[in-house]
Write a protein that binds this DNA or RNA. Structure first.
Lengths: 106, 106
DNA sequence: AAAATATTCAGCATGTACGCTGAATATTGA
DNA sequence: TCAATATTCAGCGTACATGCTGAATATTTT
């Protein structure tokens, strides 16, 4: 997928960038410990930010695939996409692959 | 472990922010697959950026604790701090803790 | 000491992130 | 339909990130 600027934004970049902000990490934990789903307003109530600011964080998390959402009446319910966090695990797993022994440090 | 500013919480932010940039993730992988250590110049040679730009990335990674460095003659050797990546694993582990069942989704 | 090598520092331009506020949209209930 | 509720959109200012170039520093070699 290519963003507006034409830059090739891969999934890793979207996910790691989304996780770089403390408020967004907290959003994910908040939803998780609430059972996996929460209305936007409930989430926003947790933060001292203006709710519009939290809206923006939710959009970034959804764009990264870490949340999905659905309207429910006049509320929007955000749902944690736990599987997406596996991307991070996958990246970390690279550091368990044995490096090329010909380049091993002496 | 406590970072230089004395705030433990910021370690997550430093690490996740450092990992948010593709070049910095690639630096870590490059060093890892080179045996865990590499001179700044060798690392810079991998990228099309100006080397001063890579220097900055190396500083950010070191500030996050993901790299350490030591002078060796006229070179600076950067060493991957694999243990620091455990911070990421630790954060992910939160999502394996069973949430409070009283708040379980119906 | 001078030159070559390896790396970092300083400063600049540009773009984006993140907070805010005010207005707009969508849905529900009286 | 009007008012209330829930959320999003649009625009703004500030700050920081990231690329660049040119100069500075430190070390080794000649």
């Amino acid at each position: 997928m290519v963003d507006e600027s034409g830059r090739h934004e891969d999934a890793y970049e979207a996910v790691f960038s989304a996780l770089a902000h403390p408020a967004r990490r907290r959003v994910l934990l908040t939803i998780y410990f609430n059972g996996g789903s929460m209305a936007a307003g409930e989430i926003a109530a947790v933060f001292s930010h203006a709710w519009q600011t939290t809206t923006r964080h939710l959009q970034i998390l959804e764009a990264a695939g870490l949340l999905s959402s659905a309207r429910d009446g006049r509320m929007r319910i955000y749902h944690l996409e736990r599987k997406r966090l596996d991307l991070v695990r996958d990246w970390l797993a690279h550091f368990s692959i044995t490096p090329d022994p010909t380049k091993e440090a002496p």
